[in-house]
Design a protein around this nucleic acid. Structure first.
Length: 459
DNA sequence: TAACATGATTTGGA
DNA sequence: TCCAAATCATGTTA
């Protein structure tokens, strides 16, 4: 109590933080000062501060007693506010400068990415853009729905985990902040802690937690990237084209064997017909050209099949054209070209060959194929603008040649090109390249119809 | 399950 | 940018 009395005595008449304090204490000022002059007041404050500082040097009981005495002192709030002010003006001013740092660019990138991937944004349609892009990249038309839903399901899973974890972090952050705030408020009774400082401390805590959140966001981004790369990796999801698509592509290939380089328009048309992308058509032709060239023998039967098929189509078309010209029916110029695959269903190449032989020799009595020139004229007069019609018109000459090879083979005739080739790979030159690969077939071939899609001028 | 078929990718050249 | 060639990776078949 003696100490307390001394402190109270010392505080008497001291002006703190602009407050005029009139000492109400009866005790005389220490060291013989009357408390009226400035030096004396400074001395008083010095004494108080000295006492405060020496608290730590004293025993616990003593210190507790002193602390209690200080707390109970009526001047305590004034002293407290002064200490807070000093603290504010010194140490905290340094921290304050760090507070105004701009938002972390990395965090912004992560946020943007999560938003773009549909993880942090609104749930409806989240990630659909990415999935759609992936679906387009994979090229397939029918199988994508399954892959799409699979992708979305996994993305939803990631999204759920992300939000759960984010909530946990936020909850933990709030709890910790509340705890620290309570603690600081509690301590503010014994040491100078201003509300502003508490606010700052909350900011620091939030920053610490946001760095943890950043790690979470980073992990989520990585997971999305892995998912996306797997989904986009078309190689993993390779699907064979449908039989019909392969037939269409093969038909085009073998009917343009002299120059199997479809133009952009032809590629688009084929892509549309086959329900695949243009790049897939390009891939297919690239692979086909290489593999055909590498092993022509292996593809002979296939070549025969498609050549015969196309030739029969052409023959039917020619017959229809003749009929049309006889009946003078200009209103249906393309009717002869509307051949469907189902119209020619034979079991084997042999059957086709025998049919073709009969057609040419007239042994079946069906009809005699006109010579190629006359046939070309018939085709030209039709001037069909559909892909099929144009294709047939453009390649009648080569198909007739093919048919002659077929007939020759059937009759045991060798065309002198070597080997026992039924279908002559006449498109290949001695260098292993296609004879007219660099020349548009429309230029070198008189059979190319004006409306033909097949131009190959790109080569 | 190995061998083959096939769609996609990579690389280098023109 | 397109193509040839080599290669990869997956699908299909015996």
């Amino acid at each position: 109590m003696d100490e307390q009395a001394r402190i109270m005595q010392a505080l008497g008449g001291v002006s703190l933080a602009g407050h005029s304090v009139q000492g109400g204490m009866a005790l005389p000022p220490p060291h013989g000062h009357d408390g009226s002059d400035g030096d004396g007041r400074k001395q008083d404050i010095g004494d108080i501060l000295h006492q405060i500082m020496t608290i730590t040097d004293q025993s616990l009981d003593e210190a507790q007693a002193k602390k209690h005495g200080l707390n109970c002192h009526r001047m305590k709030p004034a002293l407290f506010s002064v200490l807070c002010e000093i603290k504010e003006k010194t140490g905290l001013s340094i921290r304050g400068a760090q507070e105004e740092d701009p938002p972390d660019p990395q965090l912004m990138r992560l946020d943007n990415m999560l938003l773009a991937e549909g993880v942090s944004g609104p749930e409806k349609g989240g990630g659909s853009a990415a999935a759609a892009a992936a679906a387009a990249a994979s090229g397939g038309a029918s199988d994508n729905s399954i892959e799409h839903s699979d992708y979305r399901a996994k993305l939803t899973q990631i999204r759920q985990i992300y939000h759960t974890e984010l909530e946990k972090y936020e909850q933990a952050c709030n709890e910790f902040t509340t705890h620290v705030m309570n603690l600081l408020r509690e301590q503010s009774r014994t040491r100078p802690i201003s509300p502003k400082e508490i606010e700052r401390m909350v900011g620091i805590i939030h920053r610490k937690f946001s760095s943890i959140q950043m790690q979470l966001k980073q992990s989520t981004c990585e997971a999305v990237m892995i998912l996306r790369s797997r989904f986009l990796d078309a190689r993993r999801k390779r699907r064979n084209f449908s039989k019909q698509a392969t037939e269409i592509l093969n038909e085009y290939f073998y009917s343009h064997l002299s120059n199997p380089y479809p133009s952009e328009e032809a590629k688009e048309e084929l892509a549309k017909k086959c329900s695949i992308t243009v790049s897939q058509v390009s891939n297919w032709f690239g692979n086909k050209r290489i593999r055909y060239k590498k092993n022509i023998g292996k593809f002979q039967e296939e070549a025969n099949l498609y050549a015969a098929k196309t030739a029969v189509n052409a023959a039917h078309a020619a017959a229809a054209a003749v009929q049309n010209s006889q009946t003078n029916s200009p209103t249906t110029p393309n009717s002869g070209f509307q051949m469907k695959d189902e119209e020619f269903q034979l079991d084997s190449a042999e059957n086709k060959n025998s049919l073709l032989t009969n057609m040419f020799t007239g042994s079946s009595g069906s009809f005699n194929l006109p010579d190629s020139g006359a046939m070309f004229m018939s085709m030209q007069s039709l001037n069909g603008d559909s892909y099929q019609g144009a294709q047939v018109g453009a390649n009648v000459q080569s198909q007739v040649d093919t048919l002659r090879h077929v007939i020759s083979q059937t009759a045991g005739y060798s065309d002198g090109l070597g080997g026992n080739s039924i279908y002559s790979p006449h498109g290949l030159n001695a260098n292993g390249g296609w004879q007219d690969a660099t020349t548009p077939s429309s230029v070198i071939s008189p059979t190319e119809g004006p409306g033909s899609v097949h131009s190959d001028t790109s080569n």
